[in-house]
């Protein structure tokens, strides 16, 4: 009985994987992606500079390895955000166009399988990009220091988690507003995410009534904690000694991704249905 149920569930997810493969393929065909990727790799290659410039004052007396990782960290975080938002948006526009969606809906596929397939495909696309860029930084550091520097992969993995989060947000907003506004909302959400700690302190100290204060803090807890995630990443990359506990922050982000996925699947039930 249990075996049959598990097999049935696995079969359902097999269809998700089939759709994901198509979405990944479609995303990787976007020319804009290669523009972003080329620029990102050029920026990543700049991580060579601290090893070449012998004057330590240029990089605030930091060891070349640290300066190189810092350049890599900034480049990857900027370009992963751009790739996640713009490529996800264009892929969604292609994939959820009325005609293409109609053809998919005429097949024996549940709607949740379609949207989860799309999300999984975009995750695969963003993971590939993240892997390439991180490998670029790692190779630069490895070529100069001859050390395996596994901490680079560990630290950058937080960026991969953030990239999944950006993609999830874009898809979620696209299911509510199927146009370019989905990208703008994602940006707004991320900007709000940067201010969470500040707003949290403000509401905790301010003269607000108990109920309002609790509600505001609860609302803030739902927002992504981008600053904290970057803190976790930077600590792992040995850039700064930041006092953060990675586990709750990472779990919070994973939980947000799961909840957003469920909400997106729920919202997609009515998508394009007239």
């Amino acid at each position: 009985m249990l075996k049959t149920t598990i097999l049935k569930k696995l079969k359902q997810w097999r269809l998700v994987a089939v759709i994901a493969k198509d979405v990944r393929r479609s995303a990787l065909k976007e020319r804009m992606l290669y523009g972003f990727l080329l620029l990102a790799l050029l920026f990543v290659l700049m991580a060579n500079v601290p090893f070449i410039v012998k004057d330590p004052k240029v990089f605030d007396n930091q060891p070349p390895e640290v300066a190189a990782v810092q350049i890599g960290f900034v480049s990857i975080n900027i370009f992963i955000l751009l790739i996640a938002i713009f490529i996800s948006l264009t892929t969604l526009q292609n994939f959820l166009a009325k005609e293409k969606l109609a053809l998919l809906l005429s097949k024996p596929v549940w709607r949740w399988q379609i949207i989860e397939g799309i999300i999984l495909g975009l995750y695969q696309m963003i993971f590939l990009n993240w892997f390439l860029l991180t490998a670029g930084v790692w190779l630069v550091v490895f070529s100069h220091t001859k050390s395996l520097s596994f901490y680079i992969w560990q630290g950058m993995s937080v960026t991969a988690l953030l990239a999944f989060f950006y993609v999830t947000l874009v898809v979620f907003f696209y299911c509510i507003l199927p146009n370019i506004m989905a990208g703008l909302f994602t940006f707004f959400m991320l900007i709000a995410g940067f201010g969470v700690n500040f707003a949290h302190d403000m509401f905790a100290r301010g003269p607000y009534p108990f109920f309002l204060r609790k509600s505001l803090i609860l609302g803030l807890n739902v927002l992504p904690k981008i600053n904290d995630l970057w803190g976790v990443s930077m600590r792992s990359l040995k850039l700064f000694r930041i006092d953060v506990h990675p586990t709750p922050i990472i779990l919070h982000t994973i939980l947000l991704i799961i909840v957003l996925n469920i909400l997106t699947s729920f919202k997609f039930r009515r998508f394009g249905r007239t």
């Binding site: 198509d22 005609e99 109609a102 053809l103």
Partner: peptide, 8 residues
């Protein structure tokens, strides 16, 4: 077969 061709 839909009205317009929409194959990837």
């Amino acid at each position: 077969v839909p009205e317009t061709t929409s194959l990837p």
